[in-house]
Design a protein around this nucleic acid. Structure first.
Length: 99
DNA sequence: GGAGTGACTTTTT
DNA sequence: GAAAAAGCCACTC
């Protein structure tokens, strides 16, 4: 099916390792303002490994949420070379990936 | 078809 | 600068 969620996933797969994007960016790339819906898509996503949903963060550089808990998400991001201070990404705009 | 929900964003206290 | 409120969109019941 080609519903909203799949579009999010398509974009998600485009994000290179070591980069991140925001819910807002994804929504914008889909020509919509469904920031919330994007979040729902991630929450529903069950291909936690296949889809790098951990590379999606909030627009202010905060980690956001994660199915397995934000600590896990934080750990994954760090393992990809992204610096994080507590729950905030360091040099956020530098890691940000633009579609 | 309408109310409830959430891994959000922005503005205002 | 942190916390609360309001606004918004797709999905489910």
């Amino acid at each position: 099916m080609h519903d909203f969620n799949d579009r999010c996933y398509e974009l998600l797969k485009q994000i290179p390792k070591g980069k991140v994007t925001t819910y807002k960016e994804i929504a914008h790339a889909l020509h919509t303002k469904a920031y919330r819906a994007v979040g729902n898509a991630m929450a529903n996503n069950k291909y936690l490994i296949t889809l790098p949903c951990h590379r999606v963060v909030r627009s202010d550089g905060h980690i956001g949420g994660f199915a397995k808990g934000m600590h896990e998400k934080k750990r994954l991001l760090i393992s990809e070379g992204i610096a994080i201070n507590e729950d905030k990404i360091v040099n956020f705009e530098k890691y940000l990936y633009h579609f």
